[in-house]
């Protein structure tokens, strides 16, 4: 840019470096990412920056995305599976503004998917990168408050404590009641918090062709699962890991074997279960699939 654009008052208009972060910061983050990929599941500290959004809104994921984003990437952002909730819309427009990249809501068209709390239903393919927003990267946090100690436990692969948490679940509830942020062992070495995705999504992380990156902004940690890596959910021999099962299919697209959200319809107990992944649901509806509460054909279609 040769001359700065000026506003009416004569002040220079605000311009950002590509994808907001300066190049040195991106370099630093990329180094952390490379290290994280080299040691699957290991939490790499990085100098997390202040971002123009509050902690807890995906500052870690945004920094990772900013560091890997290229001009030709196509970005998809989801929040709890949905492309149109506040967090997803805000982050998508943030990168439209600061990087000018193309965005999409279709999982298969995206090259980078930033996500909060879900993995898309459509299988990811080689070449795609999924970036998770992570609030608390340390799986042992609520069992062992000292950071020095948790690091030592990871270093020594001393994960009996994690098993104690699952034991407590069974003792109190009769089954493993952890339904999200369900701990996994990556490549047979590090125990990792997969971020608060439902355990329904855990099997999707195993042997995935896509690169999986995790960014925790407040906690200043980045970790990764390289493509085609073994990811095993922890369990007991007599209480094996199992994902949630739903009694009914999606009320809008009739999909089975997908993760459903419960939507309360009235104050008389009315409810419906619909796909949490809005793109998956819309794609199926466009293909002509219907559910028990679908609008009659043609109605409400654009």
């Amino acid at each position: 840019m040769t001359a700065l654009a000026r506003t009416a008052s004569g002040m220079p208009a605000i311009t950002y470096n590509f994808a907001y972060l300066d190049e040195q910061t991106k370099r630093m983050i990329r180094r952390a990412i490379l290290k994280a990929i080299a040691i699957p599941g290991y939490q790499v500290p990085f100098a997390s920056r202040e971002m123009p959004m509050p902690y807890g809104w995906g500052t870690g994921g945004v920094q990772v995305t900013a560091a890997i984003l290229g001009a030709n990437d196509v970005l998809k952002v989801i929040d709890q599976g949905s492309d149109d909730t506040t967090n997803a819309v805000a982050i998508r427009s943030f990168f439209e503004t600061t990087a000018g990249v193309a965005t999409t809501t279709r999982t298969r068209d995206a090259t980078i998917i930033q996500t909060r709390h879900r993995i898309p239903e459509a299988p990811l393919r080689a070449g795609q990168v999924i970036v998770y927003q992570v609030p608390i990267p340390e799986p042992l946090r609520f069992l062992e408050p000292r950071e020095t100690e948790t690091r030592r436990l990871h270093a020594l692969s001393d994960y009996g404590l994690m098993q104690v948490k699952l034991y407590e679940d069974i003792a109190r509830h009769g089954h493993i009641a952890t339904t999200y942020a369900y701990p996994v062992k990556v490549a047979g070495r590090y125990v990792m918090d997969p971020s608060p995705i439902p355990k329904f999504d855990n099997p999707k992380m195993d042997d995935s062709p896509a690169l999986q990156l995790f960014g925790a902004g407040r906690e200043k940690r980045i970790y990764a699962i390289p493509p085609y890596t073994r990811v095993v959910s922890l369990d007991f021999e007599d209480h094996p890991f199992a994902v949630q099962a739903f009694a009914e299919p999606c009320a809008l697209c009739g999909a089975k074997g997908v993760y459903l959200d419960e939507v309360i319809l009235d104050d008389k107990g009315g409810r419906m279960f619909v796909c949490s992944d809005t793109d998956h649901c819309a794609t199926r509806q466009a293909e002509g699939h219907t559910g028990s509460m679908s609008a009659p054909y043609g109605e409400g279609q654009p």
Binding site: Y167, A171, R172, F236
Partner: peptide, 27 residues
Amino acid sequence: LRMAVSAGGNVGERLMAVGWRHYGNIR
């Protein structure tokens, strides 16, 4: 002790740390 963990979990912790992975046996 781990004060927030049940008595059974407290006793079972060492077993799990040395590799016991069968809930029934630990209990």
